[in-house]
Amino acid sequence: MESISAGSEERLVVVDDHPLFRDALSAALGRHRPACRIEALASFDALQQRLGRDAELDLILLDLHLPDSHGLSGLAWLRGHHPELPVLMISAHDDPDIVQRALADGAAGFLSKSADAETLSHAIDQVLAGETWVPDGFDPASSESEESALAQRVGELTPQQYRILCMLGDGLLNKQIAWELDITEATVKAHMTAIMRKLAVNNRTQAVTLFNRLAVRKQDVD
């Protein structure tokens, strides 16, 4: 399949924590879309830093199961901070419920990791044209849900607040978070106050419970 335009360079970012798949996907994109400039990143944190330096991109291909993005919460954050950037979710699973949740939370498409390179390129064509790409046989009916409202609230968090909330979701205590981020416990508590206000909750337990609704566990898609 030919690339969209031989005269313009597409800027794509692949975000996946598995080196073999990340490299294979980047190589496949390079072969089928020679006009692309492709960057490969290993974590959601690296993507946040990349966007902080330069957000002039055409498309983000985002792995669903990044360890530091808690399922669909990374997508929610991206839609809140960079609504102009289309995000194509990539996963080894294409369970209809997960696909629907991703679309409801703002994904421009959902692609299985088992797709061949030509299908991948076609999916990118559609997404860059402003259309939605979903697995064969899936009905992309739009839906508004509580999760969509939650995704919007998560999208209001700053990058540091998002990192802290992810760490809370992993069960870390304030002092552990402070050590990991090289900040004081008082700063962590100040961020927690802002997080709870943005999520409209009263304590950290409620914040984690709400945040975990955006998680996608392996057993949910097996």
Score class of each variant (00 low, 15 high):
residue 214 L to C: 09
residue 121 S to F: 07
residue 12 L to Y: 03
residue 113 K to A: 12
residue 135 P to Y: 04
residue 88 L to K: 07
residue 166 C to E: 10
residue 151 A to L: 00
residue 211 F to W: 08
residue 18 H to F: 09
residue 201 V to N: 02
residue 106 G to V: 08
residue 169 G to P: 09
residue 175 K to I: 11
residue 96 P to T: 10
residue 161 Q to C: 06
residue 127 V to A: 07
residue 150 L to S: 14
residue 88 L to W: 02
residue 43 S to N: 10
residue 12 L to I: 13
residue 45 D to R: 04
residue 209 T to S: 13
residue 130 G to N: 13
residue 212 N to M: 09
residue 221 V to G: 09
residue 131 E to Q: 11
residue 80 G to R: 10
residue 198 K to H: 04
residue 155 G to W: 01
residue 212 N to H: 14
residue 210 L to H: 05
residue 157 L to H: 03
residue 15 V to I: 10
residue 65 H to T: 13
residue 97 D to T: 11
residue 39 E to M: 04
residue 121 S to Q: 02
residue 119 T to F: 01
residue 93 H to V: 15
residue 137 G to D: 09
residue 42 A to Y: 12
residue 182 D to M: 15
residue 143 S to T: 11
residue 173 L to D: 08
residue 83 P to N: 05
residue 210 L to N: 07
residue 171 G to C: 07
residue 210 L to V: 10
residue 16 D to T: 09
residue 51 L to N: 07
residue 195 I to A: 04
residue 118 E to P: 03
residue 70 H to T: 15
residue 189 K to C: 09
residue 132 T to N: 05
residue 208 V to K: 04
residue 86 P to T: 12
residue 82 H to F: 07
residue 190 A to F: 04
residue 106 G to D: 04
residue 185 E to V: 11
residue 166 C to D: 06
residue 137 G to A: 08
residue 75 L to N: 00
residue 161 Q to N: 03
residue 132 T to R: 07
residue 35 A to V: 06
residue 99 V to F: 06
residue 4 I to P: 06
residue 157 L to C: 03
residue 145 S to L: 09
residue 104 A to P: 04
residue 208 V to R: 05
residue 86 P to G: 05
residue 151 A to V: 11
residue 22 R to A: 11
residue 173 L to M: 05
residue 202 N to C: 04
residue 129 A to H: 07
residue 220 D to S: 13
residue 139 D to G: 13
residue 160 Q to A: 09
residue 128 L to Y: 13
residue 93 H to T: 14
residue 91 S to N: 06
residue 61 L to A: 10
residue 215 A to Q: 15
residue 112 S to C: 15
residue 7 G to N: 15
residue 69 S to F: 04
residue 209 T to L: 12
residue 92 A to P: 13
residue 121 S to L: 02
residue 150 L to P: 14
residue 134 V to W: 00
residue 119 T to W: 00
residue 54 D to W: 02
residue 58 D to T: 01
residue 91 S to T: 06
residue 56 E to I: 06
residue 22 R to Q: 11
residue 23 D to F: 12
residue 62 L to I: 08
residue 93 H to Y: 15
residue 138 F to C: 10
